[in-house]
Amino acid sequence: MNSSIFVKSAKGLILASGLIAASSVVGYAQDATVALGAQATVPLSSLYANAPTGSASLGGHTFDLSGGNLVSLGSGESVTYTGSWSNAQSVYLLLNTMNTYFWYDQSVVGNVTLTFSDGTTQSTDLTVGGNIREWRTGAGNTVTWTSDPATSYVWSGNATDGSAATIDMLTINLTGSTKTITSVAINNTNGWGSLRVDLAGLTVDPQVAQTPSCIRPGNSCNTDAAINSQAWKWQPVLPGATNVNPHAKNADKTNNGHKAH
């Protein structure tokens, strides 16, 4: 075997595989992180020992914790973040309560309200012991459990006093939605006591429209030669889509033009 031919072919295979790998990730949605900004005034470090910082991956999603602070809402207070998130499929919030004594169990103490560009809204109640709980799970006489699978425990460690502490993630699922979210509001509607609603992070998961990706060397999928080629593997397709090129897997070419016996 001619070794130079083998080396050249191997390089071609490596190049092709690299192009295929690169094309497979084009068009996939990524988390759209939201910075909490000036409305976040409570340092995470004042509550948590070794709290996550910066661009943090929690529960499989990315949150912007670079500000180092969380939003703490007292009774009747709210915070709103605006933007334009098209075809959003999920909203993820790092949410817990503070001073969550036993008597709040199963009480609705707030809500998360999504507003869409068409003027409609969607509200999710925050229920103690349902989808939200005390941040300092090592504290006594507080609600330290949840029952709603929409809430997951994404970080555990210690409070600055050494007791156990947690950061939880609430997922609001919008699968199949084609709407555009224009604002996310978190409201503490509790009318009595010292309970607070703490927001440590916010991320929206918009669905980005996928476009065909070319895996032919030189990005040459739209040349006359490529369009009329029998080499169906070079035609641009969306991940998981069917190749509709008229020459794709052409049945009359499966036997290389020879008559069937």
Results as ranks from 00 to 15, higher is better:
G201M: 06
R216A: 13
D64V: 02
L47N: 05
S9M: 12
N228E: 11
I186M: 09
W85Y: 12
C214V: 07
G129H: 09
V7P: 00
P239M: 04
Q207H: 08
N87I: 00
A40Q: 03
V112W: 00
Y28L: 11
T182R: 05
T120C: 07
A22M: 11
G59W: 01
A139L: 05
S183L: 06
S17T: 04
P236D: 02
R136T: 02
Y153T: 05
K259C: 01
A40T: 04
P217Q: 10
Y48A: 04
S183I: 05
P239H: 05
H261A: 11
A49D: 13
P239R: 06
T175W: 07
V71L: 04
G37A: 03
V197L: 15
L70Y: 14
G218D: 11
D125C: 01
N87E: 10
T146D: 12
A21H: 01
S57M: 12
L93Y: 02
P212V: 14
G176V: 09
T178L: 08
T166P: 00
A165H: 07
T178I: 01
K249N: 15
I215Q: 14
V34R: 02
V184F: 01
V197S: 05
A231V: 10
L19S: 06
V108I: 14
G191H: 04
V208Y: 14
N228F: 13
A51H: 08
S3R: 07
T178A: 13
N111C: 02
G191C: 06
A21S: 13
D198K: 03
T189S: 15
S23P: 02
V25K: 09
M98N: 11
T182L: 02
S84L: 01
V143H: 10
N228H: 13
R196W: 00
S66G: 06
S90V: 01
L114N: 04
N158Q: 15
A159Q: 07
Q39S: 11
A56Q: 06
T97I: 03
V109G: 06
N131Q: 11
W155T: 09
L36T: 08
G54Y: 15
I14Q: 10
L73Y: 15
G129Q: 12
T182N: 10
W85I: 03
L114F: 09
G157M: 07
G54W: 15
N228Y: 13
V154P: 10
D198M: 07
M169A: 08
S46N: 10
G129M: 11
D168Y: 00
Y81G: 02
A88Q: 04
G240W: 03
T137M: 08
F6I: 15
P206K: 02
S66R: 04
T127N: 05
D105T: 09
G157F: 11
T166C: 03
V237E: 13
C214P: 15
I167T: 04
S57H: 03
V91F: 03
K249D: 14
I14F: 05
P52R: 03
T41E: 11
H258S: 08
V204I: 15
S90E: 14
D31T: 10
G27T: 12
A248D: 11
A226Y: 02
S163N: 06
L93Q: 08
D64G: 06
T223M: 04
